[in-house]
């Protein structure tokens, strides 16, 4: 009787270990692929990084923060490039060309269960503010992503001139 219960406990424990191992590289079923940052012109103060975030788990999650080593940039923010609303007072020029694009900061980027969210040029991106030095082709940038449920996940973005 006692032995069975012990064995059962062992069985439960081993299932837990397997589950944890499966979550290894990603955290909580989240996986980040194709992470890259664009090379930056010598004088540029800001840079941008892109990636695909896949939520392979059964529960929704959200990207709520990002940080970067101060040796790379002063700070990192989640941004989205959107079409801007023209304002009669403040907007210059005339619109014949499909409107203006602008960026806005995003507090929370939903990563629904079973879906992949793309951070790509002209859409969501990780903006790197006050670069310590230019982003050079062939180097890498480490970003720490903070998810609401899964916690922190460190990703390595490859610096390249154009996307993968």
């Amino acid at each position: 009787m006692k032995r069975t219960s012990c064995r059962r406990r062992l069985a439960i424990a081993s299932v837990l270990v397997v589950t944890l191992a499966a979550c290894g590289g990603g955290s909580g079923g989240l996986e980040v692929t194709e992470a890259w940052a664009r090379t930056s012109p010598a004088m540029a103060e800001a840079g941008a990084a892109y990636m695909q975030i896949t939520n392979g788990g059964g529960a929704d999650d959200a990207l709520v923060g990002v940080s970067v080593d101060p040796a790379v940039a002063r700070s990192a923010e989640i941004h989205e490039t959107v079409m801007a609303e023209a304002d009669d007072e403040a907007t210059h020029g005339s619109d014949m060309g499909g409107g203006m694009m602008e960026m806005r900061a995003v507090d929370r980027l939903e990563i629904p269960a079973g879906e992949t969210v793309s951070l790509e040029p002209g859409g969501y991106h990780i903006m790197l503010l006050d670069l310590a030095s230019p982003l050079e082709e062939g180097s890498t940038v480490e970003l720490t992503l903070t998810f609401e449920n899964a916690g922190e996940l460190v990703v390595t973005a490859e610096v390249r001139a154009t996307g993968p």
Partner: peptide
């Protein structure tokens, strides 16, 4: 910018 049909706003 108006001649090109471009808009901008600082």
């Amino acid at each position: 910018t108006a001649a090109f049909g471009v808009q901008w706003e600082i």
